[in-house]
Nucleic acid binder design. Sequence first.
DNA 1: TTTTATAATCGTAATATTGCAATATATAAT
DNA 2: ATTATATATTGCAATATTACGATTATAAAA
Lengths: 110, 110
Amino acid sequence: MGITKSNLFTEDQNQLAKVAKVLGHPARIAILDVLLTAETCICGDLVEELGLAQATISQHLRELKSVGIIQGNIEGKSVCYCINPEQWQYISHQFTKMFQRFPSSHSDCC
Amino acid sequence: MGITKSNLFTEDQNQLAKVAKVLGHPARIAILDVLLTAETCICGDLVEELGLAQATISQHLRELKSVGIIQGNIEGKSVCYCINPEQWQYISHQFTKMFQRFPSSHSDCC
DNA sequence: TTTTATAATCGTAATATTGCAATATATAAT
DNA sequence: ATTATATATTGCAATATTACGATTATAAAA
């Protein structure tokens, strides 16, 4: 086994899970933290900021790009990464929609 | 390797990533969907609703419980699962806080 | 007590993820 | 053209996850 049975679930469920999975690593949250904090877009300084090898950072960046939440633009011999505004909003909305389905005024159930 | 270097990151980053990781599987999103939809708390009907084996569902439930987002109460010989209101709110707030750090009126950067 | 029903746990195979060194690629500088 | 710098990709070892059959634990029912 070891393979997720995506066919059992809806498109929405698979998509939300995929984004959550990408957010499910502290290095990737840390990368987003850096991109959110820096007023200007940070490039490969990420390798110095976080204490991971260059190859590892590059891999995490690729995963973040895979769900479109960040984008990278080549700038000379380095690459400038930043949040992708549209996709950030979209993903934010998807999570918010789910969280809001549970009324905040809900007493304990079973 | 294969082991996440949690020591490199902040407590907040590790915690948010941990919750996101738990949400990062469609079966677990589907379980939350069921719990959000059912007006009353659903128990092991989850096994029938989703098409996964009982052992697999039980494992996913344990992971959801591990971050406190759901709770299970023994009811006779079955177990009633439901959303944990306080933790749901807390987790919702953590995600919202992160998403709101990026101003919605942000033009493309680099 | 024995049986039945429900859910958790154990053991295990298949697959995925994490991390890094080494290498490849691409652009800038000399 | 050669060298230096920055990033991506490849290959691989260690570890984690997914899924399920088999077993165990618990409690209701007979």
